[in-house]
Design a protein around this nucleic acid. Structure first.
Lengths: 233, 233
DNA sequence: ATTCCGTAATTGGTATGACCTCCTACCAAT
DNA sequence: ATTGGTAGGAGGTCATACCAATTACGGAAT
């Protein structure tokens, strides 16, 4: 006879995790997203505070919760860069990591641009234009960087693929440093030109042109990065 | 006078996390990877067992550790799909998720193939051939699926980009279902042809051809998937 | 001597309760 | 109205005890 599989009892922490996660997803954005204090939640769930804490810690790592000392626990709608933690462990430090980073971005950004071109509504194009204006008008370095990040993030939203968007967010978190280089005094004008080309392609719903323009943007950024690394040496 | 910002102290859990992570990374695969029991580790680090536990739990989630009740804690080399947890929460269920999934794979797989073609050594090509043979010889459905997954995973290793590899692993975890479709009785011969084309391009170090072949592979898989979804309806 | 089984030791899992640190809001003094 | 202090709430850490799963060891049966 074949023996019964006999459910492998999930640990309490896992049970609490999945239950909270499900509840969070179902609840959605209704309410302020504030959760009861740990002690109360633990009591309601019928587990110790220890378990409840390990569960919330885990959900925080996955980007579902935001735990702030002194304040409390809040649900946060958008997932947070689940890759960045693993990556900072995986790759020792800067030189090689930046190279792989730009390679990864070069893979997904063109696809995002392509999908965005296919799906962009008039309002989306308008929003992109607004962000582009901000880049043109930016005086401080940081403003330009933020506008650049916003541009890419918005494209990801328009593309309507949560997975690609999540990946991009994860990479952007690690990539601010490299972008500081790209948008530097040297490359800023080029970045503006590239963005304009992408913008036009998206506005025209020309998917191939958008992907190509974005690819070009990525390649030049990678080139600048390599050059920078060389002069540094 | 301007007041100094005074660095924000990272929490104890974070400190323990990064310290353990660094030590694990430095140690590498030397030794059996077995760690001291929780109580001992906590004492050595000078923290409570609670903190030590929250830290190990976190590292386990990131795939650096394996915690087994009664046995102990062991280091495990390969990181685990940090995306899958977030995604299963993020996207309710199958139909739309599979579409986004194949879109994401279509973005990164060609880039992996491209890099693999550039960097493949003779031994790498040989290994790929071996895996391809397994796909040809596979009789059971599961064997074919596993060989397919292995093919892509090996390409990722050859490409030498940890970030892309990590992303692929994350997606593959969620994609077994869709691949069961792709490698089904219908698409199996095509999958073999595609793999052969990719293999040849990699062996010839023809990056563009490899990327193109992989793109084609992805597009057809997506097409099959869409067709399957339609008949299901 | 080998195999099998039960018991004990090891080790992670959970539960409490206490104390510390940080954040917020409220209130009083200026 | 602004400033500064103060009390309560809430997460962070700790120490201890007990529960549960796994492994290791030793004795009994073969």
């Amino acid at each position: 006879m074949t023996i019964l599989p006999l459910k492998p009892t999930p640990s309490l922490v896992e049970q609490v995790c999945s239950r909270l996660a499900r509840q969070l997803r179902d609840e959605g954005d209704s309410g302020d997203g504030k959760l009861p204090p740990e002690r109360l939640m633990a009591e309601r769930l019928g587990v110790s505070r220890t378990v409840l804490r390990e569960a919330t810690k885990r959900l925080e790592l996955q980007g579902l919760l935001e735990i702030r000392h002194g304040s409390g626990i809040r649900a946060v709608n958008r997932l947070h860069k689940p890759l960045s933690g693993s990556l900072s462990i995986l790759l020792p430090e800067l030189p090689e990591r930046l190279r792989q980073l730009s390679e990864a971005r070069a893979a997904i950004e063109p696809e995002i641009a392509r999908q965005a071109a296919l799906k962009a509504k008039a309002a989306d194009v308008k929003q992109l234009r607004g962000i582009h204006e901000r880049l043109l008008a930016a005086e401080a370095h940081d403003e330009a960087v933020e506008a650049d990040i916003d541009f890419h993030r918005t494209l990801a939203r328009i593309a309507g693929n949560e997975i690609l968007k999540l990946m991009l967010e994860s990479l952007a978190d690690l990539g601010r440093e490299s972008r500081r280089v790209t948008i530097g005094n040297v490359g800023r004008q080029r970045a503006i030109d590239h963005h304009a080309a992408i913008l036009n392609a998206v506005a025209a719903h020309d998917a191939n042109a958008a992907a190509k323009a974005m690819k070009h943007h990525m390649d030049e950024a990678a080139h600048d990065l390599a050059a920078k690394a060389k002069t540094k040496r």
